[in-house]
Amino acid sequence: MNKYTLFFLLILLVVYIVSPLDLFPFVFDDLIALGFLLYFWRKFKNRKNQRGYNSGKRSQSNIKSEPVGQMSLDEAYKLLNVSHETPWSEVQKAYKEKMAKSHPDKVAHLGKELQEKAEELTVEINKAYNIIKRYKS
């Protein structure tokens, strides 16, 4: 269904609901027409949003998804180089130190491969920090 057909149906349904002419007495048919109107309106808005997102400045290739797989609590502690008994303030300090060393902005002057590795490491460090944060709180 193209956008003109959808737009025409929306207008037709609005005119039918507002008009005093009814196929059935009472408001039953108006409620059905209102249901169709909401359905088509939502479909129209979704299509408009999808088209706007795909034609925006950011392309799908720029959006990095997180790698699939879960990190265990032990792996999270090992990645941040802290133990299970470490207080939360020390975990935060270790997280900040790791992020300061491996943040992609810090290696922007280096090659593309190192920048990609820094981005991957940053995602892993953030995952580890969030896992420990959930466990500690």
Rank of each mutant, 00 (worst) to 15 (best):
K112V: 08
S61V: 14
Q70R: 15
Q115H: 03
F7L: 05
S19K: 07
K98R: 11
S59T: 15
F7Q: 08
G56M: 10
L6G: 01
F36I: 08
G69A: 06
L37P: 00
V14W: 03
G35Y: 09
K78H: 04
L114K: 05
K57G: 13
A128M: 03
N2D: 09
R51W: 14
E75V: 05
G56L: 04
I125L: 07
H84I: 11
L80K: 01
F40R: 03
W88M: 14
N49T: 14
D22C: 10
N130I: 10
S55I: 12
Y53A: 15
E66P: 10
K101Q: 15
Y39R: 10
Y129G: 03
M99T: 04
V15K: 10
L80R: 01
Y39E: 09
I125N: 03
M99Y: 02
G35T: 11
D22I: 12
S89K: 12
N54F: 15
I131A: 01
K98L: 11
W41G: 10
T86S: 08
F26A: 12
Y4G: 00
S102V: 04
Q60T: 15
I131P: 02
P25F: 06
Q92L: 06
I125E: 00
V15L: 12
L31Q: 08
G56A: 15
K78N: 04
K93D: 12
K117T: 03
L23P: 01
K57M: 14
A118S: 04
M71V: 09
K106C: 06
G52K: 14
S89A: 11
L79P: 01
L114Y: 06
V107G: 01
Y53P: 14
E90T: 08
I131L: 06
E124P: 05
F24G: 05
L37M: 00
N46S: 13
S72I: 07
E120Q: 07
F44V: 00
S59E: 14
K45C: 09
M1Y: 07
S89Y: 07
F44K: 05
G35L: 13
